[in-house]
Design a protein around this nucleic acid. Structure first.
Lengths: 203, 203
DNA sequence: GCGATTCTCTAATCTGGCTTAGAATCGAGG
DNA sequence: CCTCGATTCTAAGCCAGATTAGAGAATCGC
């Protein structure tokens, strides 16, 4: 009561802002940039469309924030998992951990990540600036993983690891286009992706 | 489909229609569904926007045709290359041929293919009906390749080839999001993709 | 309780971009 | 040359959906 609690008042407001952002992530991940109506986002968030303007200057600003948060969180999540890998693990093991972390986060944990991945190439140029900085760091993280693995002799020396990295990220990102949790097991997906990279399909 | 080719002069009218369709494929492949303005398409085709309506009933009908043509041609191209594979080739060799054909066609030969791949998940539901039938056939083609390879013992028995197929197609489709012919060699890309599937990255 | 402030709503405005109307142009016969 | 159909143009029309205005409801500090 007598508590100053600007944090409390701000908290309710912040919660609404969060609901709107979550709703935007959900709709964007499902319908894509072109199919996302502000009215849909508002409905999911449980407000009227104009209320969004109290928290965001424009539709595009809202979209940009979703994209950035998505890119940011994926990176944090993968970094966390990598940090938890025991000291003695091989470079290839670290790569496998990153693959698992990326897939699980993207498919299970975060509409933001899905929205970010699906729409990265479809939003207007200006919206890509801030998220692009995040993605650059993420690219760097993966490049390091591949470089370490190749230098350790755990990735064939004749492979172009830049291309390989982009192919792998592509395979994982595209999963959001076809994944259906009801018909497939995430564990199987992770295992298959890891197997593809580590050993390939051939006998 | 839209080219009965009345013998001699592919009537001027048909040529214009083709120019518009080509322009739409080019713009769609570059800017995506949301970013494609009818005025841009018209400019590339060298006409005014309303001229498009002489040949297509609506923007969406134009987009749908591009998407369908893209899906159709990729499949035809891959089928052609597979038909040219010598009798004695292994199932894995056939898979490698398909990978190369898909990549080369998508990146070198066809804005239609690129447009189709990039926008498949971003156009309104109703536009996906006709292209979806094409894609189903294409899926079938790849499934057969994988089944044959696994039954021949050339793909490890413990792999889920449905997941593997989707990962591979994803890796190849995502290439359109990052590919830059100026900085990378298509031959290297093809070789790396083939190597990834056949042998993996591990040593 | 009671203003002051924060938040949300309804109603209206604005605009980009698809689409339509209808006039001009072109090209092949006659 | 003139006519007619095919083609393309300029000038509007029109609408979905973002955005703005300004009036109410909720909440807070006192």
């Amino acid at each position: 009561m007598t508590e100053p609690a600007p944090s409390r008042a701000a908290s309710k407001s912040a919660q609404t802002r969060q609901r709107i952002l979550d709703a935007a992530a959900e709709v964007l991940s499902r319908k894509g940039y072109a199919g996302t109506r502000l009215a849909d986002v508002a409905a999911v968030a449980g407000v009227q469309a104009p209320a969004i303007y109290y928290y965001f200057a424009s539709r595009d600003e809202l979209v940009e924030e979703v994209m950035w948060v998505g890119a940011h969180r994926v990176r944090l999540h993968v970094e966390e998992r990598l940090a938890a890998v025991p000291e003695g693990a091989s470079a290839m093991d670290r790569l496998m951990v990153a693959v698992e972390a990326h897939l699980r986060f993207e498919l299970q944990l975060s509409d933001y990540a899905t929205a970010s991945v699906r729409n990265a190439g479809h939003v207007p140029e200006q919206l890509r600036v801030r998220p692009a900085a995040e993605e650059a760091q993420y690219t760097h993280l993966w490049r390091d993983l591949f470089v370490a693995a190749q230098q350790a002799g755990e990735v064939r020396a004749d492979l172009d690891i830049n291309i390989l990295r982009l192919l792998l990220l592509g395979a994982m990102n595209w999963v959001v286009e076809w994944w259906n949790p009801r018909t497939r097991s995430l564990d199987d997906l992770v295992a298959t992706a890891q197997g593809m990279i580590r050993h390939g399909a051939g006998t």
